[in-house]
Design a protein around this nucleic acid. Structure first.
Lengths: 112, 112
DNA sequence: TGGGAATATTCCTTGACACGAATATTCGTG
DNA sequence: CACGAATATTCGTGTCAAGGAATATTCCCA
C-alpha cells in the first residue's frame, strides 16, 4: 500500500499509469507521449514494476508494459473505508468537543 | 490529486489519516498514539492540512483535527476509472502484440 | 557476424523532505 | 499577569530520489 502510494505520488509515473489505462504500450511510445527521455521512462517503469503496478512482456527488443490489477484494487478497497466520511454526516466537529471535554481532561503525556 | 497522493505517501501521515478515521482528535492524542514527537506531528498535520485532507478546529489551546471528505472522494473517483482493469478481462497482452506489429512498425522517434 | 534499434543500467549531481533540537506562540488559570 | 499547558515554527543536517549524460545489453536483420 505504501509502495503503491509512493509510486503514484510522482507526476510522470502517475501519467504513465494513466496512459497505460488506455492499453499496453512499448517504452518508445511512452517516451513520445510523455516527452521524457528514454532512460527516465525506463527508471519510472522500474519503480512501477517493483510496486507491482505494471508488468512487462518481452517482444523482441521491445518491452510491452501493461497495468496490473492487484495494487489498484487494493487502493480501491482502502479508499472504500473512507466512504462514510463523505456520505454520512460523519465527523461533524460540533458537539464532539463537549464530549471530549468531559472525559479525561488531564491527558497525561510524557515529559521530554 | 497529486498533492493528495504526496501527502498520503508518507507512513506517518498515512497513519494519522487512519487514526482520524476513528474520529477527530487533538494533537496530543495523536502524539501518544503515533509515538512521534509533537513537532513532527504538527508538521505532518500541516502538510495534510495544506492538501485539504484535514481541518482544524480550535478549542482553547488545543487544536482538534478532523478528516475532510473532498480529497478522499476525489481519490475514490480516480481509482474508479481503473475498476475495469480488474473486473473485465481487460488488457490481456496476448493478441495485442500482433495487432501492434501490424500498424506502424517504424515508430519514428527523434535522434538525440 | 556486424550494425543498428529498443531498452536498461550506472554514475553523478542536485533538490526535496523528514527528523531532531530549540524556540516561539497562544490561551487558560492561579 | 506570570506561569504552565498545548501547539506551531525555525533552523540545521542527513538521506533519498529524480534528472542528465554516458554506457551497457539484447535482439533483429542485412
Amino acid at each position: 500500500m505504501m509502495e503503491t502510494l509512493k509510486a503514484l505520488a510522482e507526476p510522470n509515473r502517475l501519467q504513465i499509469v494513466e496512459l497505460l489505462l488506455k492499453g499496453p504500450r512499448p517504452v518508445g511510445e511512452l517516451v513520445d507521449e510523455l516527452g521524457l527521455r528514454q532512460p527516465q521512462v525506463s527508471k519510472h517503469l522500474r519503480v512501477l514494476s517493483e510496486a507491482g503496478l505494471v508488468a512487462v512482456r518481452v517482444d523482441a527488443q521491445r518491452r510491452i508494459y501493461a497495468l496490473q490489477p492487484a495494487p489498484l484494487k487494493e487502493l480501491g478497497t482502502w479508499v472504500e473505508k473512507y466512504r462514510r466520511v463523505w456520505e454520512e454526516n460523519f465527523q461533524r466537529m460540533d458537539g464532539l468537543l463537549e464530549e471530549m471535554k468531559r472525559k479525561e481532561k488531564k491527558h497525561g503525556r510524557k515529559k521530554r
